[in-house]
Each structure stands twice: as structure tokens, then as C-alpha cells.
């Protein structure tokens, strides 16, 4: 993936290390995705310039749908039932799901997508 990715991951892990002083950097299990890392990726990818996203500084965009209460949203991208798999499918290739959609393909890694999903599903 991009060269920034390991840096972001390292800084994100350091960030988590700060948040929960009882966890060492290497202890973070990476199976389910981390909402804290998701928040960092969401900030770095400038998602907030198009979406309102609670908890993300400056995320007040009025281009795409607001992502408040994302977890209880029934349909995502206007066309898919809301499920983690469908969200990951959309984030991986938005314009394959909505052909003439404004949401661009951000080139996210699978880890980044898992982390973003973990964050969004915390927005009950």
C-alpha cells in the first residue's frame, strides 16, 4: 500500500498506547478493527469535508450523507442493506457500488477499512 500507511499505523498505535496506558503497543489485537485507528484514518482521508461525522474534529461536510447514527442506518450508499460486509464492499470500491457516485475510490487498505467500519458502527 501507500508509504504513509505504516506511519499512520505506528502513530495510531502510539495514540492508543497513550489512551490506555495499560496496553503496550504490541498487544493490540488486529482482528476486528480499531475505532481509535478508524478515527485517525477518517481524519487523514478528509472524510469530514463531505460528511458530518460525530467525534471527528471539523467533520461538517454537506456533500454526502451525514454519518451520525450510522449503526442504526438501514440502507447505506442509498442502495445496500447496512451490514459490515456491505460497508467494506462500498469503501473498497465505492464507484463499483454506485456507478456515477461522487464518493471516490480512496485506495484504502483492508486494515484501514476495518478500522473505519469499527468507528462508524460505534455511532449508534
Amino acid at each position: 500500500m501507500s508509504s504513509y500507511h505504516p506511519l499512520a499505523r505506528a502513530s495510531g498505535l502510539a495514540f492508543i498506547g497513550l489512551l490506555s496506558a495499560c496496553h503496550g503497543q504490541t498487544d493490540v489485537a488486529r482482528s476486528a478493527g480499531s475505532a481509535q485507528l478508524g478515527a485517525i484514518t477518517i481524519g487523514r482521508q478528509a472524510c469530514g469535508s463531505c460528511h458530518v461525522i460525530p467525534g471527528i474534529e471539523g467533520a461538517d461536510g454537506r456533500v454526502g450523507p451525514p454519518l451520525a447514527h450510522f449503526a442504526s442506518q438501514q440502507i447505506i450508499a442509498g442502495t445496500l442493506p447496512n451490514s459490515p460486509d456491505n460497508l467494506k464492499r462500498f469503501l473498497k470500491a465505492p464507484r463499483a457500488v454506485v456507478r456515477n457516485g461522487t464518493m471516490p475510490d480512496l485506495g484504502l487498505s483492508d486494515d484501514q477499512i476495518r478500522d473505519i467500519a469499527a468507528y462508524l458502527y460505534e455511532l449508534k
Binding site: 508509504s3 499512520a8 487523514r44 461536510g61 454537506r62 456533500v63 461522487t102 464518493m103 485506495g107
Partner: peptide, 20 residues
């Protein structure tokens, strides 16, 4: 429908999309 260059996400502050 067009993403920024990948490296733009390595900038801080990161440059915004300008549609709005």
C-alpha cells in the same frame, strides 16, 4: 468522483475535498 493523490492523506492538516 475523483480521490486526491494517496500522499495527500499523509499531510497534516490534510487538504479537504472542495465540493461544498
Amino acid at each position: 468522483g475523483v480521490a486526491r493523490a494517496q500522499w495527500a492523506s499523509g499531510m497534516l492538516p490534510t487538504p479537504p475535498y472542495l465540493i461544498d
